[in-house]
């Protein structure tokens, strides 16, 4: 029953082949098997959002996805997102706004906030809060996080004019 499953997938643009146990969730696969420790394992039951990563272009809870199910998938983690510079401005805004306190939630926050930048460029402050409502910051630094996303959206809109 606990036989290993062979998977081949793209992680941050690199082809990866591994043999995984069925019980391995995506975050442990990334952290323990691939050494990509940017994605955090928090509650491990889908509540806190610290494990937010992209699978096939859309954000998911990494702790609620079996690595074994991802044969052929495309996974992007905070490492890949950072290297692509897609949200370099957002990350700068996180620093400027002091939106990372202990930093545990930050990778998941940035992944979820990147989703707002991509899909909801005109999001209001209320919509930003709604979109990030599944990502917990136990330092409760939400105001600064929402500030950083709001500022990034505003700057991007300004630049587009």
């Amino acid at each position: 029953m606990s036989a290993r499953i062979d998977i081949t997938l793209m992680v941050n643009g690199e082809r990866v082949s591994r043999s995984v146990e069925a019980r391995r969730h995506l975050i442990d696969f990334l952290r323990l098997d691939l050494g990509l420790t940017g994605s955090h394992a928090g509650c491990e039951h889908g509540v806190c959002g610290a494990c937010t990563v992209r699978v096939d272009g859309e954000i998911v809870r990494g702790c609620l996805v079996l690595a074994a199910s991802l044969d052929g998938a495309e996974v992007t983690t905070i490492e890949g997102l950072t290297d692509s510079a897609e949200v370099a401005d957002l990350q700068d805004a996180f620093v400027a706004c002091n939106a990372a306190q202990c930093g545990f939630c930050s990778p998941g926050m940035v992944m979820a906030a990147a989703d707002i930048l991509r899909h909801h460029p005109t999001a209001t402050r209320e919509e930003i809060r709604e979109h990030l409502s599944g990502n917990y910051c136990r330092c409760t630094g939400y105001q600064a996080i929402v500030d950083a996303v709001e500022q990034t959206l505003a700057t991007r809109r300004e630049d587009r004019r």
């Binding site: 606990s2 069925a22 969730h25 199910s69």
Partner: peptide, 11 residues
């Protein structure tokens, strides 16, 4: 918590 040891098959 980690998942228990379990099997997996894809249809």
């Amino acid at each position: 918590m980690k998942w228990p040891a379990i099997g997996y098959a894809r249809a």
